[in-house]
């Protein structure tokens, strides 16, 4: 039973990076596919379209930072906290990246026929990013209280 709890603890350390990366893969994939399609229909502004498709990659960076914060020798005291927070923040990063990818795809689709609304079109993607940042910051704060933390 102890080894199972320790296993969950280790999973909790890496889950933010893994789930964040999965979300970024899906999000960047969706937006990137939309950008590729849009290239067939525009004569200029290619860089801007492809640039927008990279927005969902930030969730992986947040995941890496949380994993670095959680990285410690896992004990029976710290494992439940690491797993709970790691899983929840990972899920938040996963879904935010997926949804952000869809927002970016819509923004690309809108911008190709109406370039003047580019700023407004990416606003929904920026709002979704905001929620990912909230999850990331509070994971860092709450993670600081887990036993064995260098900050705690």
């Amino acid at each position: 039973m102890d080894s199972y709890i320790l296993l969950l603890g280790w999973a909790g350390v890496f889950l933010p990076t893994a789930l964040g990366a999965i979300g970024s893969i899906i999000g960047c994939g969706r937006a990137g596919q939309a950008a590729s399609g849009a290239l067939l229909d525009v004569d200029s502004g290619y860089g801007r379209l492809v640039g927008v498709s990279a927005l969902p990659s930030s969730q992986t960076i947040y995941g890496i930072v949380v994993t670095m914060q959680f990285n410690r020798t896992v004990s029976l005291d710290s494992a439940p906290g690491l797993f709970s927070i790691g899983l929840l923040v990972g899920l938040a990063l996963l879904f935010s990246a997926m949804v952000q990818g869809s927002c970016c795809a819509s923004a690309i689709n809108t911008t190709k026929s109406k370039p003047e609304v580019f700023g407004l079109a990416i606003a929904p993607a920026a709002i979704v990013e905001g929620f990912a940042v909230f999850a990331f910051i509070f994971a860092m704060i709450v993670g600081g209280n887990i036993p064995g933390s260098t900050a705690g």
């Binding site: 969706r30 937006a31 596919q33 939309a34 399609g37 849009a38 229909d41 689709n109």
Partner: peptide, 8 residues
């Protein structure tokens, strides 16, 4: 995603 974005 590619197909829809490629349509005007």
């Amino acid at each position: 995603y590619s197909l829809v974005a490629s349509l005007p």
